[in-house]
Amino acid sequence: MPLASYALGMMDASVYAPEVFARGLPSTLQPSAVGVVPAGSIATAAAPLLSLQGIGLSFGGVVALADIDLSVNPGEIRAIIGPNGAGKSSLINVISGVYRADRGHVLLDGIRYGQVPTQRLAHLGVARTFQNLALFKGLSVLDNVASGLAYKVRSNFAGQVLGIGRSRGEQRDSLSRADQILEFLDLTTVRDRLAGTLPYGLQKRVELARALVAEPRLLLLDEPMAGMTAGEKSEMAGFVRAARDRFATTVVLIEHDVGVVMGLSDRIAVLDYGRKIADATPDEVRNDQRVIDAYLGVASDNEDGAGI
């Protein structure tokens, strides 16, 4: 059964592939437009690439997500923020099919899923990074990034061992594309190091490279800047923006650092206790009273400490 479903996955991929390219092209025109036109008008101009409808998820009695709706337009950088335990990572896991939502469904490119098929995620043009590093420690940086193209490999192991058939071309193609991404993200100097030996900030960037090498239409970033210094954060933000502009990738990103998010995103959704309490442009979110109460905080009115 696993083998059969895998085989089906391959077939589906070849069916979708032309479509992927056909839809990918017009969206290359959009990134420049996104910055200028207010977000609201894009929503009417293009169908959302991803939308969540009434997503609910609970672990035992703990409600992680309650009735979440979210739509992500092609080419935008969409941030999801919220305090710890607000359900941000759960949401990414639902989108990428790691969790199955109890209620609601995920619409990816117009196709409706109860649970997004994880094994086919790459074929659907979705890539993600993980909150805790999920690199392959025993592979070099180059091989880590090249493995982001493993889903495309059609040659079998015998062809690869003997170096015959399409395996040679595939190998050359994977490595050269991985090299291009390494150059793009300024990782060429660590190309041949084992991924596990790199400092934390660089490992985060290698993970971004591994996700980007497949040139996904939708990139899910789970706290890409967690634990970084301010300098590394702004560098990372620059890379995320550059990736969006160069590959016309739609980005959904979870982040704690509100300052970085405000500057980077086109629209921000705010979660609190599994509910979406706001969904608007950075400026609107910054002034939303509920967001301020839940997350951003205010200078205390009670400065003289009366009543304490």
Binding site: L121, A122, A146, S147, S155, S167, A214
Partner: peptide, 21 residues
């Protein structure tokens, strides 16, 4: 080869390996 890299990928992080296809 790519198959060998897949082996290591599954050893080092099975979830990530599944996600990248």
């Amino acid at each position: 080869s790519q198959t060998g890299r897949n082996f290591i990928a599954i050893r080092d992080n099975e979830t990530a390996a599944r996600i990248i296809g």
